[in-house]
Every structure is written in C-alpha cells, then in structure tokens.
C-alpha cells in the first residue's frame, strides 16, 4: 500500500509545516515576553543574548537564569497606600490613566454600536421601505472608508466644539462619537446578517399573540440575535482598544488619552529600558489576546458575516 503511507507522510509534512509557520508567526510575541522578563543588566548587554541564562563558564545554564519582573514593576509602579481597599496603589500612568481610559472608550463605544447596529440591522432585515437599498449600499460603501482622511476635519470639529464650552462636554464624548461613526457601518451589516438568519415566523407569532412590533423586537429577536450582537460588541471593543491615531490626535488632554497613546509615549521615554516597554506591550495586548482566544468563534462568525458583504 504505497499510496497510503505516502498520504500519511504527506499529512505529517503538512502538519509539520503548519507547526513551523505557527511558531514563526508567534516568534515576535515570544521574544517580547522574553524581553519583558529580563533585568536591566541583561538588557544593556552588548552583543545581546537571547536568554539571560549564561554563566562565565557556560553559554546556557537553565539553573542560572536571571529572570526579573522589574519591567512590570516599573510599568505598574506599585506604591504602598494606606487609604483605599488595597494595601498598595498602582501609580504608573499606563495602568492608572491610559488603560482605564481605553476601557471606558471601548466599552462605551461597543455598547452604543451594539444598540444602534441592532436597531438598524433589524430594520434593514425585516422591513422593505423606500430608500432601503440606497441606504444599504451607502452604508456598505462607507464600511471601507478609513479614519485617516477624515481626521483633519474631525480635528477641526473637535477644536470648535471645545471652544463652544458646552455643559458636560469634553473630548471623551467626541472621541466615542468618532469611534461609533467608524465602527458602526460594518456592525450594521453584521447585525443585519444575524437578523436575516432568524425566522420571521417567530416574530409573527408574537405579534398575533398581542405583542407590539417594538416588543417583539425586544423580547423575541434580540435574545435570539444575542450571539451576533455579542460578536459585534467584541469586534468593536477590540477595534477601539487597538485604535491609535484618532485617540492621539483628537484628544487634547493627556489624561483623557487611550492606552495606545500611553504605549507610544512610553516608547519615547524608555529608549534603553526595553524590558519596561516590552512589559507595557504585554500588559496592554494581553487582555485582547485572551478575549480573542476565548471568544474566537464569535470573532470568526462576525468576520465571515462582514466579509461576505464587504
């Protein structure tokens, strides 16, 4: 049976190649983790060595590794504190200011986008009205529009709004609106796709039983569309968390800027201390990677839904 053994050999070869590709793909991530656990003494070595595990006599000795967490310590800047719930406080700007900001922007934007995309996705899926196709094509067209070219005008709008001194207004609201405007179009398409997959008969039954149209949307369709809306939420959350240029340029005060600005600022401040920069990268990227690994089905379903149309 030469063909069977050849087939098996082929499958080993393909699996081996894919494992190798995965390793190469993750190599930059692995090196960043590695750097983040080095001490200053090993960071400034010339020429650099991969593992901080050499001794005067041996090039690599696993028992002599000088792993350090000073990178993380300097990002977090733990200080003892007597007030508050915890016996210590995180005083590093990244964890004290920038990550909470990003958390606020990502959550708020994702919630609003889910709400608006849910409503309009439902309307596009269930109703035939004048101008529907025109609106759908319009939304499809701006789905691909990148943020970059509108930034200049948005910046000027931000300046005008700031000068107007509206009550309760600050740059954070403006930034969330901008994020909404840019992540909404794709979300509308994704939400519409998910509503299309829900049978109409269920809603009709609710209407016959005396439910109002809005009530049937709220009680029947929304719960059924929940996995889809969850996908929209996660995708928007990650997109906002990872966005840099708008958060950098549209917000005037540093205390309102997001984590991606924080890491960029950090890069300028730690030219030699690579372990600190690496630790900051890990701290900011890790939550997103964890979310992705646990909710990957959600992401893939949203991407397939979005990719089919746009």
């Amino acid at each position: 049976m030469p063909s069977v053994s050849r087939k098996r050999w082929n499958s080993w070869l393909v699996n081996g190649a894919l494992i190798l590709i995965c390793l190469i793909a993750l190599l930059p991530v692995a090196t960043t983790v590695l750097i983040s656990f080095k001490g200053e003494r090993d960071i400034i070595r010339k020429p650099p060595n991969f593992f901080p595990c050499d001794t005067p006599t041996r090039a690599f000795d696993p028992t002599a590794c000088r792993w350090a967490i000073e990178g993380y310590q300097r990002v977090l800047a733990l200080k003892p504190a007597d007030d508050g719930l915890l016996p210590f406080a995180l005083t590093g700007n990244i964890v004290r200011v920038y990550i909470p900001n990003s958390l606020l922007y990502a959550t708020t934007t994702a919630l609003l986008v889910v709400f608006l995309a849910g409503m309009s996705g439902y309307a596009f899926s269930r109703y035939r009205f004048r101008g529907r196709n025109l609106l759908l094509v319009g939304i499809l067209a701006i789905t691909g529009v990148p943020l970059l070219t509108n930034l200049l005008a948005l910046y000027q709008m931000g300046v005008v709004l700031r000068k107007a001194q509206l009550p309760f207004y600050d740059d954070r609201m403006f930034l969330v609106s901008v994020y909404m405007g840019f992540f909404l179009p794709l979300s509308v398409w994704i939400a519409k796709g998910f509503f299309d997959a829900i049978p109409r008969e269920l809603e009709e039954a609710a209407l016959i039983d005396g439910c109002s149209p809005f009530g049937s949307l709220l009680r029947i369709s929304m719960p059924l569309a929940l996995p889809g809306l969850m996908a929209v939420f996660l995708l928007t959350f990650v997109n906002v968390w990872n966005e840099f240029i708008a958060g950098y340029l549209l917000v005037a005060k540093n205390e309102f800027k997001p984590a991606m600005f924080g890491i960029y600022e950090f890069l300028g401040q730690n030219i030699i201390n690579l372990q600190v920069v690496a630790a900051a990268c890990i701290l900011i990227a890790l939550p997103i990677v964890v979310i992705f690994v646990f909710a990957r089905r959600s992401f893939f379903s949203a991407m397939i839904e979005g990719a089919v149309k746009g």
């Binding site: 590709i21 995965c22 793909a25 993750l26 930059p28 991530v29 090196t31 960043t32 750097i35 990650v238 968390w241 990872n242 966005e243 840099f244 991606m260 890491i263 960029y264 890069l267 690579l274 920069v277 690496a278 990268c281 900011i284 990227a285 997103i288 990677v289 992705f292 690994v293 990957r296």
Partner: peptide, 19 residues
Amino acid sequence: LLFIPWIIADIIVGIVFRL
C-alpha cells in the same frame, strides 16, 4: 494561533518589531 498577530494593535506590532 495564526490569528493572534491580527488581534494585536498595529502600534504594538511596530514596537515589538522595533525592540
């Protein structure tokens, strides 16, 4: 595993490669 690079922000990818 292959998808992990896609989920990392471009600014962080830049820093990772810079390091």
